[in-house]
Nucleic acid binder design. Structure first.
Lengths: 155, 155
DNA sequence: ACAGGTTGGTTGTAGCGTCAAGTATTGCCG
DNA sequence: CGGCAATACTTGACGCTACAACCAACCTGT
């Protein structure tokens, strides 16, 4: 027997869907307009920029960016063609490949970051109270724990 | 001068992104597997099923489903080819078109609903306390108010 | 030392979404 | 009442993602 959602659960769910559907569009269009980047591309570059030596293995980068390996592989190809990253075979494991941020890639993230952070602030952080930001952290973490238990333990 | 995110804000933001990136995939794959429907297609049918006479204008349906008119138009074409909805010109306004759920469309939503609700429960509602569900409602509403102020006032 | 299985990654294709342009109808304003 | 703008949608082309098939390198037990 199906346990349906009561009024409160349904209301929360409907709002969450709305955010999930609309937020990516807002992020993408700001970044595309101001930095010729997808939000996902930005996130890839951002994760690399924070990694030691600005290098990560494909698999590690994929989990950090919440993507499948196939998706990341396609995007890495495009970013490599644009000169923002370089792929090199991993010396320790012949199967693996390392992705590293180039100088041009670094400049691109640095240039894009302020505009992006401003959009995030305006649309997500600033409309919330400090307490709500903290609640959002716990809530998203709880949900993420179900969506992919491994995603939480890794970083 | 850019106001960067502090640790707490950043932590919340990173978790939110993870949910926003991963949740659609989970919903889509369950529905595709069990009902041959995209989550967006399901949502379109669901919104129609709750409307008076199971009919809505394209624009109204688009805002209810958080989509652009172009996206909805493409999806409506596909759903119409599958016999799940019908499009008819609106008598009162020659520019508008009404989308209505067919009997087959109704059967499809009814058949898909239990599995979908179960997935939503497992991945989103049940991992949260009742208080968190309530907090999520407020948080998502606040964010939505910025993403698209009109989306909140309409329904 | 090697067969079988697992892990890491790439590629092709088909489908969905966005963007820009186009059509048709309505409303408004002089 | 004529013209111009706004509204409501449709369409086509292009780009990105998911899915599945694939290959290569590693690892394990025997």
């Amino acid at each position: 027997m199906t346990r349906w959602l009561d009024d409160e659960e349904l209301a929360a769910w409907v709002r969450l869907i709305a955010v999930v559907e609309r937020l990516p569009g807002v992020l993408d269009s700001q970044l595309r307009r101001d930095a010729e980047l997808t939000h996902f591309e930005y996130y890839v570059l951002a994760m690399l920029s924070e990694a030691p030596d600005r290098v990560l293995r494909m698999t590690a980068l994929a989990t950090r960016t919440n993507a499948t390996l196939a998706r990341l592989s396609h995007v890495a190809s495009r970013l490599e063609k644009r000169g923002l990253v370089v792929r090199t075979p991993c010396p320790e494991d012949g199967r693996a490949t390392n992705v590293s941020l180039t100088a041009a890639g670094w400049d691109t993230v640095v240039a894009a970051a302020p505009g992006h952070v401003t959009t995030v602030r305006e649309n997500v952080i600033d409309p919330l109270t400090r307490e709500q930001v903290h609640q959002l952290h716990s809530i998203a973490e709880a949900i993420l724990g179900r969506l992919d238990p491994q995603a939480l333990s890794a970083p």
